[in-house]
Design a protein around this nucleic acid. Structure first.
Lengths: 219, 219
DNA sequence: AAGTATCTCCCCATTTTTGGGGAGGCGAAA
DNA sequence: TTTCGCCTCCCCAAAAATGGGGAGATACTT
């Protein structure tokens, strides 16, 4: 008898994991190896174990999906990954592809799609949800989307630790003087971080920063 | 044989619904009557059918959970409701209780909690996730939380149409001059709305407004 | 040793936001 | 009819955010 496809599921919502397991259980060729509730758990898991397919949520506490993929790339861990996301964000997909993801599944999509996605990716194909595909089409009409190894990530020149700290506090409604007080640095420094955050995230004001923080599960 | 508890599930993520159904199916006393993917579907469903328990997500397209509860109150529909939420937000809970919800379940909680919540609520008890309970305790030390019929909602003196319009644009990173331009009103007027928004939502700046908009699915 | 990144701080000026007040017009409800 | 909510606009002033520049200290890498 053929070996079943081993799947590991990572999402911070246990209910959702149980749903995925329930759906996968209906298929004879696929098997859930285990699950993780945070990015840290995924990384710890990957140190000792592996799976044929990793289903990875982007928004997780303690290292999000992006960080996990970056870690995999760094450690040369080569695991086929299907991204699970609430946002049909093309930019995110781009980044995911450059980070080695093979599939992109919207949380809105029904269960059968998971099965199809897993089988497609396991057969070395790529799988994208319909919403993503139409979004991509709009963007790259005529151009093909390569899964190539672009050296630079298009989005997010990765924020520094301190920048993330400031970003969190901004998203928690703190003003610059307050942040300066909390972090025990001068207001000027806080403002410097504000500027670099605006540049790096490519948004136009503090509201944009807060939204960025929400989307990237930084808060 | 005793009649099973009929449950209707409303959430915009089909995977999550399937998860809940899978969990509920393991219990012999409960049965899923059906599900809805948007607030509109819930309202349409409630026009003709009913259930013992409604499991209701807050964040849904086309009328969110809050709107659904408001509709129920307006139409004097009395259905026991368990709120499903990603946020352990005490303020939200308060509003939910005043709108008649009987339970509050965090999406982080595992499946068994759903079963317990359904049975508790069906037995005319209230059910709150642990995170909510500890948050409430912090706020109301010593005070008891009534499920009474307070005439006025404590939070959100319900925003006017125009305020919501301005709020949306703020959350979309627009500045006051821009908003004035978009809505074809003077900057002064926009600033007046900013002030009343800050008062009504009880946040301290534009970032807070954006967060409020996100939480209440106004954008 | 030279470069690079990060953290830190400052100067400048302009724009935007916040916070207080008042006030007219309009339509619906009491 | 009068009151009330909503939309609209204004004055004023202080606080905060934005945008440009420069620059020193430290630590890590090549």
């Amino acid at each position: 008898m053929k070996q079943k496809i081993q799947v590991h599921v990572a999402d911070d919502h246990k209910i959702l994991i149980e749903g995925i397991i329930a759906v996968i259980d209906t298929d004879k060729e696929i098997e859930v190896e285990g699950y993780s509730l945070t990015g840290k758990e995924v990384i710890d898991w990957a140190k000792e174990k592996t799976a044929d397919i990793l289903i990875l949520d982007i928004n997780m506490p303690q290292y999000d999906g992006i960080e996990v993929l970056k870690y995999f790339k760094l450690k040369k861990i080569d695991m086929k990954t299907i991204i699970l996301s609430s946002y049909d964000d093309v930019k995110l997909v781009q980044e995911m592809i450059t980070l080695g993801a093979s599939g992109f599944l919207s949380k809105d999509s029904a269960g059968e799609h998971i099965i199809n996605a897993i089988k497609a990716v396991h057969a070395d194909e790529q799988y994208f949800s319909d919403a993503i595909k139409s979004n991509l089409l709009k963007l790259y009409t005529g151009q093909k989307v390569e899964s190539g190894e672009r050296p630079e990530s298009t989005i997010a020149n990765s924020l520094t630790d301190r920048e993330v700290e400031v970003l969190k506090l901004i998203a928690q409604e703190h003003s610059s003087p307050e942040i300066a007080d909390i972090l025990n640095i001068s207001q000027s420094t806080v403002d410097t971080y504000r500027k670099s955050l605006l540049k790096k995230t490519n948004v136009k004001n503090a509201v944009g920063l807060a939204m960025y923080a929400v989307k990237n599960k930084i808060i």
